[in-house]
Computed example of a mutant assay.
Amino acid sequence: MAAGAGFSVASLYYSQPMLGLIASDLHAQGGGAGLVPTVTQLGYALGILLLAPLGDRFDRRSLILCKSALLALALGGAALAGQLPGLLLTSLLIGLAATLAQDIVPAAAALAPEARRGQVVGKVMTGLLLGILLSRVVSGVVAQAWGWRTLYVLAAIAVALMGVVLARALPRFAATTTLRYPALLGSLWRLWREQPSLRRAVLSQSLLAVGFSAFWSTLALMLQQQLGLGSAVAGAFGIAGAAGALAAPLAGRFADRLGSTVVARLAIGVALVGFALLLLGGGLSAAALLALLAISALLFDFGFQSALVAHQTLVYGLLPAARSRLNALLFTGVFIGMASGGALGTLALARWGWQGVAALATGAAAASLLVRLRRA
């Protein structure tokens, strides 16, 4: 299930390092190729809001297998796209189908004993997070060596094989509600209104996502402007992020023992320290700045991923019959935070330089901690 979550969510990010090759091959003018990751993320956002809640209404196993087949077909279609509009359409479908990751995690929570739920969720989230962090590295290497279409073909094969494995391994899941689809979506607002713990978890994680996205959205541009370094160096910082992702199972284990709220507060504190270190970057030599960035990325990635697992464990324990809907609300909030952080980070870099980005990320993490410290 961890591998399944990783392969599916990685599909969202494969295109980013390949945009230059895609634009050249499809003769996309005026930055049209840049719409590919945007449309993919849009599809994912729509899928989280409109499709993820179906996990409470139908057998999650069937949903996971259907989405696996759709994702494999969409990736294969992307490899065959002859023009940009065709690639944009398949990218939208990739985003929609990649939400099977948001079916796998609640399924893992449902299968886990209550005493080990955090640990199990943490292990599955490790696969998901490694898929996010390593997908760009893999796609860049494969596309450079064998072309961007080859990457999509290999991705389609990997997802298809993953679907076969999940079909053999997963049990069936009983539906936890009989609500019709409009009422199912309408219940999202009721859950949001009636669950203050859910609101605090979503707001806290979303604020942390603002700082996380602000850093990663502007890092490559800052390295190029200040140090004259290319995208390969920026991509290498993903290794530090991948190391931070290994915090997920540890966070889940401690969430089972100490409680999700305690772990979330500690994790946000670690992320806050990581972001605050960025404020010390002014006037450093290139080597010292790179070292500081690596340490900061390791710390705030560790904190962000640990807080996410703690918040997921907390949210899944609120109403077991509504886990898919609760998960949809949590990740909708995280997505909004990511999108806002990317936009605000770019604005901060343009107006106030890298110190502005550091201040934004630190302030967002501090606000996240304040939300988490509030008592019910």
Rank of each mutant, 00 (worst) to 15 (best):
L111F: 11
L111Y: 09
L111S: 01
L111M: 12
L111P: 02
A112W: 00
P113N: 06
P113L: 10
P113T: 13
P113H: 10
P113F: 02
E114C: 08
E114R: 15
E114T: 15
E114S: 14
A115Y: 14
A115T: 12
A115N: 14
R116Q: 15
R117F: 12
R117M: 04
R117W: 04
R117L: 00
R117H: 03
G118K: 09
G118A: 04
G118E: 04
Q119F: 05
V120T: 12
V120E: 01
V121H: 04
V121G: 06
V121E: 00
V121Y: 07
V121W: 00
G122K: 00
G122D: 03
G122P: 01
G122W: 03
G122M: 03
K123P: 03
V124C: 07
V124N: 08
V124T: 11
M125R: 03
M125F: 08
T126V: 09
T126I: 04
T126C: 14
T126K: 07
G127V: 04
G127M: 02
G127P: 02
G127A: 00
L128M: 11
L128G: 01
L128I: 05
L129V: 14
L129R: 08
L130K: 11
G131I: 06
G131R: 08
I132L: 12
L133H: 11
L133M: 12
L134R: 13
L134N: 11
L134D: 10
S135R: 06
S135H: 05
R136Q: 14
R136A: 06
V137A: 06
V137S: 10
V137I: 15
S139P: 09
S139D: 05
S139F: 05
S139V: 02
G140F: 07
G140K: 02
G140V: 08
V141W: 14
V142Y: 01
V142N: 02
V142D: 06
A143W: 01
A143R: 01
A143P: 00
Q144T: 10
Q144V: 03
Q144D: 09
A145P: 06
A145W: 07
W146R: 02
W146E: 05
G147Q: 02
G147W: 02
W148V: 01
W148H: 00
W148T: 06
W148G: 01
R149Q: 10
R149G: 00
T150N: 00
T150I: 05
V153F: 14
V153A: 04
V153W: 09
L154P: 00
L154Q: 05
L154C: 05
A155R: 13
A155Q: 10
A155D: 05
A156D: 05
A156R: 02
I157M: 13
A158I: 08
A158K: 09
A158N: 11
V159D: 09
V159S: 07
A160L: 14
A160M: 14
A160V: 11
L161G: 15
L161N: 05
L161R: 02
M162R: 08
M162N: 15
G163N: 03
V164T: 15
V164Y: 09
V164D: 09
V164S: 15
V165C: 14
V165Q: 13
V165S: 07
L166R: 06
L166S: 08
L166C: 09
A167K: 08
A167P: 06
A167W: 14
A167T: 07
A167Y: 11
R168I: 13
A169V: 06
A169F: 10
A169K: 12
L170R: 05
L170N: 10
L170P: 06
L170D: 07
L170T: 09
L170C: 10
L170M: 10
